[in-house]
Design a protein around this nucleic acid. Structure first.
Lengths: 341, 341
DNA sequence: CTGAAAGCGCTTACAG
DNA sequence: CTGAAAGCGCTTACAG
C-alpha cells in the first residue's frame, strides 16, 4: 500500500506538504496542491486511519452498542444512527450485546481500545463494570432508549407514560377490566418505567391492579410466549394484554395461535414499537409507538455535542397509541374466552 | 489514559518487558510477570489498538457489510457472523449498505482505511469501484449470500434451485398453473439465480412461462407491494406467487390485505428466508429457507482461512421448502379470485 | 530473560 | 507557503 512518503516523493514535495494538501490545509500553494492531488490519484493512496488517529487522537468513529440487532426496534435505531453519523462524517461501528451484560462489557472494552470518539449505548445492568469505566475515563457517551440510575450522561429516551395511559384508557373504554402486562426485565430502565406506567394507568382508569396479571419477561420472544401462556391459564384470564416490546409481543401471538385462539377476538393485544410487520398481521396490531428514527438521529446529535465539549440536555420523546385491529371489545373477547375454556 | 510507559515505570521494568508480559510472550520471568500484571491492574491499562496495529499490521477486526440491516435475514446473518468472529478473537465492525452501491463503496473505503484484517460482504453491483479496489489490494475478502461475476473470492452462498423447484412442484401438485414471481434485482447474483431457478422449475413441472407473471423488485418492501398489485391486476392473475425475499413478501402481503383479499384463500404465497415472524402470520407462510446461521458461521471461517494465507473452497448450502399454511389448493384460490373480480 | 533502539504512518508545532 | 524534526503508543529484531 502506498504511504504518504510515496505520495510526497511522487509529487516532489515534503511529507509535511503532502499531509497538508491531503488534509485540506489552506497553507499550500496551488502548484503543490496539483502535484499532490495527482500523486494521490496515481498511487491510489488511502491514509492509514490508525496512524492518523494515533497522532491526532481523533478517529472519526462512533461506537453503537445495541441490545439486540435482531430486534426490529434496534435494527431501525442502528439504521437511523448510522445515517445520521455518516452525514456528520462519522463511521459507526455497530456492536450487539445480545441483551447480555457480559457481552456488552466485552464490546465496550473493545470500543475503548479502538478509541472511538464517542459511544452510543442502550445500556444494560446497574452501571458497574465497563459502563463505570467509560464514564470514569470521560469517554463521550450518550444513552439511548434506556438509562442507568446514578450514571450521569445525556440520554434520549421515550416517555412511555402517555402511550401506556392511552392504551389502558382505550382498553378500559372498550370494557376491558382485566388487562395483563408482559413486562420487560427490571434490570432495564424501560422495563421498570413501563411497568410503573402500566400500574399508574390502571389506577387512573380506576382499574384494580392484580399482581397475577403481570409477567416479567426479558424482551426476547420466548419470554413473551411464556408470559402469555401463564396469563391465559389464570383462573380468570385477562381479556386484554399489553406486551412491553415487539419481540415479546411476537411470542405472545405465537402462544395464542398455539392455543387455537385468535388475537382481537379471544384476547386483545397491544404491542410496543411500531414495527412494519405488525401492520401485516391479522388482525393488525394496536401499538404504543415511539419515533425510533428521530431517537437515533437526536442521539447522534447529542453525542456530537458531547464530543465537541458541550453539555447537552437530555431529550425525552413522547409515545403514542396507534389503534389498529387487535383491540376488540371486551364483551366479545370475554365471552369467547369463557367459551374457549 | 495510562500508556505502556506508565505500566513499565510502575512495574519497574522496561517498556519491552512490559509489552512482552502483556502480549503473553513466554520469554518473561515470573517476577516481571507479576509486577507488570499488578501495574496493569492498578492503572487500569488498556493497550491502544491503533498503536498496536500500526506496528503489527494486524487489527483483529473484521468488517461486515450487509445489504440492509433492517432486513431480518441480514440481521440474523450479522448476528451469526459477529458471534463466530468473537469466538475467534475478532471484533466485527458492522456496516449497512442500504442496498445501494454508493453507500457500499463508501463503507468499503472506510474499512480499507481502518485496515480491517478481512471483509465479509454481501456484494452489490458489477464488481467495479470499491470492490475492485479491495480485490486489487489483496485484502482478505469473502462474499456471503451473493457473488459477483468475474470477482474471484471465496463465497458462501445458498443454492436456491432445490428450494424453488420444490416450491413450484408443491404449487403445481396442488393444481396451480399460473405462478407469479416477484424477483430480486438483476444487479445481484441472488436476484438472477432465483429468477433462473423459477424459470427452470416451471419447465420441469411442464408449466408455461409467461413474462407477465414476473415482476422485478429491489428486495425492499415497497417493491413487493407494487409487484403483487401488478400481478393481481393482470387479465388472468396468478393463483400463487413466490416472492424472492422476506421484505418483498411483506410488501406483497400488505397489498393483498389492502385489496381485501386473503393469503392462502385468494392467492397462495411462498416467501424466501425463514423469518420467525412468518410463522406468526395468519396463515403462516410457506417459505424457501436457508440456514442463515450456518452461512454466517461458515463465512467467518473462510475469511479467517483467507487471512491465514490459505485458499479455501467456496461453499454452497442447500435450500429447502418449508410448507405451512399460505399455500392452499388452486381450485379454491382460483374460484375465489374469480369471484373477487 | 531483558533493555535500548528503530520504526509502523501519520500530524503538528517550529523555524524560516 | 514549506521542510526537518519530534512524537502519538505500541512491537520487534538485535545484542547481551
Amino acid at each position: 500500500m502506498a504511504t504518504i512518503r510515496d505520495v510526497a516523493a511522487a509529487a516532489g514535495v515534503s511529507v509535511s506538504t503532502a499531509s497538508r494538501v491531503i488534509a485540506g490545509n489552506p497553507a499550500t500553494s496551488p502548484a503543490s496542491r496539483a502535484q499532490v492531488t495527482a500523486a494521490v490519484k496515481a498511487l491510489d493512496f488511502r491514509p492509514n486511519t490508525q496512524a492518523q488517529s494515533l497522532r491526532s487522537t481523533r478517529t472519526n468513529s462512533l461506537g453503537l452498542l445495541v441490545s439486540d440487532v435482531r430486534n426490529p426496534f434496534f435494527a431501525d435505531l442502528a439504521h437511523a444512527a448510522e445515517q445520521a453519523g455518516l452525514d456528520a462524517g462519522y463511521v459507526t461501528l455497530l456492536g450487539n450485546a445480545n441483551e447480555r451484560v457480559d457481552q456488552q462489557d466485552r464490546y465496550l472494552n473493545t470500543l475503548i481500545q479502538r478509541r472511538v470518539d464517542g459511544i452510543l449505548l442502550t445500556p444494560h445492568g446497574d452501571g458497574s463494570g465497563a459502563i463505570a469505566d467509560i464514564v470514569r475515563r470521560g469517554i463521550p457517551t450518550v444513552f439511548v432508549d434506556r438509562t442507568v440510575d446514578g450514571v450521569d450522561v445525556p440520554t434520549v429516551t421515550t416517555d412511555s407514560n402517555k402511550g401506556i395511559q392511552q392504551a389502558v384508557q382505550h382498553l378500559s373504554s372498550m370494557g376491558h377490566t382485566r388487562i395483563g402486562f408482559i413486562s420487560g426485565p427490571q434490570s432495564t430502565s424501560t422495563g421498570r418505567e413501563r411497568w410503573a406506567a402500566y400500574t399508574n394507568a390502571l389506577a387512573m382508569s380506576s382499574l384494580a391492579a392484580d399482581v397475577e396479571l403481570v409477567y416479567f419477561g426479558d424482551y426476547q420472544t420466548a419470554s413473551g410466549a411464556a408470559g402469555m401462556q401463564k396469563l391465559m391459564n389464570l383462573q380468570t384470564p385477562p381479556t386484554a394484554v399489553i406486551a412491553a416490546d415487539s419481540l415479546m409481543a411476537m411470542g405472545a401471538i405465537s402462544c395464542v395461535h398455539e392455543m387455537k385462539l385468535k388475537i382481537g377476538r379471544d384476547v386483545a393485544l397491544i404491542a410496543f414499537d411500531d414495527i412494519e410487520m405488525f401492520t401485516l398481521l391479522d388482525p393488525s396490531l394496536t401499538v404504543v409507538s415511539n419515533n425510533v428514527h428521530e431517537m437515533g438521529k437526536l442521539a447522534v446529535g447529542l453525542l456530537i455535542d458531547v464530543i465537541g465539549g458541550r453539555n447537552p440536555q437530555s431529550i425525552v420523546l413522547p409515545s403514542e397509541l396507534i389503534i389498529r385491529s387487535s383491540t376488540s371489545s371486551a364483551e366479545q373477547a370475554g365471552s369467547i374466552i369463557t367459551r374457549g375454556h
